[in-house]
Amino acid sequence: MSSLYHPTVARLTYRALLGRRRALILFSLPGLLLVIAVAVRALSGADDQTADAVLGGFALATMVPLIGVIAGTGAIGPEIDDGSVVYLLAKPVKRPTIIFTKFIVATGVTVVFSALPTLLAGYILNGNGQQLAVAYAVAATVASITYGAMFLLLGTITRHAVIVGLVYALVWESLFGSLVGGARDLSVQQWSLALAQKVADNGAVTSEVGLPAAVLLLLAVTVAATWYAGRKLRTLTLAGEE
């Protein structure tokens, strides 16, 4: 594992992700979730259906993929865009190590800024009634891992990674993944909801995908995206446009 994780690459990636502009966005989304949770609790009291709507409709369907876009694409995309990646690639660090390190950082940032606020919001909304707070926090965590891999891959294959990621997060996950039947089977949101369904009390959370299939799909997409991102980074040359 130590050969796959490089502390210097991790430190540089954390510094890039937590810069002034990105940090403002990263803090604003969970901040908005907590404001909504406090307001809803003050206006309607503890209600399980309302908590499920807020945690599922905003936290998991919108906030988590958006933070994944910011962290995943921001872990490597800007370095490729401005050409500074050449200095990183010139170092005696294996390119799969670079990708895996950035994946760990992007995933960690996404979990901190999505899963933890989701857990706190759940306790604010209904005191973890029917295990909703814990269930959605688990869903946010596993979704963060897969989103981190997916959006890191986007950052290595296109200069428009943020735009593509936002379209995916807002259109596919938030809209089609919630409303269109066939699209739900191919939604990270629904895969993660399968784990939330397992954790929550019976009937409190539902998913369109069974638990074994959801776990398999989450693992497959995460591994495949991380592997292919490493392979794409290998094709970058120091003499190229990047």
Results as ranks from 00 to 15, higher is better:
Tyr5Met: 10
His6Asp: 15
Ala10Pro: 03
Thr13Asp: 04
Thr13Glu: 00
Tyr14Val: 09
Leu18Gln: 13
Leu18Ala: 11
Arg20Leu: 14
Arg22Met: 08
Leu24Asp: 05
Leu24Arg: 08
Ile25Met: 15
Gly31Gln: 12
Gly31Leu: 12
Val35Ala: 14
Asp47Cys: 09
Asp47Val: 11
Asp48Gly: 09
Gln49Thr: 14
Gly57His: 13
Phe58Tyr: 15
Met63Tyr: 01
Gly72Met: 10
Gly74Val: 05
Ile76Gly: 00
Pro78Gln: 08
Ile80Pro: 06
Val85Lys: 00
Val85Arg: 02
Val85Phe: 08
Leu88His: 05
Val93Leu: 04
Val93Phe: 02
Ile98Ser: 02
Ala106Trp: 05
Val111Leu: 14
Leu120Thr: 12
Gly122Phe: 07
Gly122Lys: 05
Gly127Asn: 13
Asn128Gly: 13
Gln130His: 15
Val134Cys: 04
Ala135Pro: 03
Val138Met: 13
Ala140Arg: 06
Thr146Ile: 03
Met150Ala: 14
Thr156Trp: 01
Val162Met: 12
Gly165Gln: 09
Val167Glu: 00
Tyr168Ala: 01
Glu173Ser: 07
Gly177His: 02
Ser178Phe: 00
Val180Thr: 10
Gly181Trp: 13
Gly181Cys: 09
Gly181Arg: 15
Gly182Asp: 10
Gln190Asn: 14
Ser192His: 09
Leu195Glu: 05
Lys198His: 13
Thr206Phe: 10
Leu211Glu: 11
Pro212Gln: 05
Ala214Thr: 02
Ala220Leu: 12
Val221Gln: 02
Thr226Tyr: 00
Trp227Glu: 00
Trp227Met: 08
Trp227Thr: 02
Gly230Asp: 00
Arg231Tyr: 10
Lys232Trp: 13
Ala239Thr: 15
Glu242Pro: 03
Glu242Leu: 15
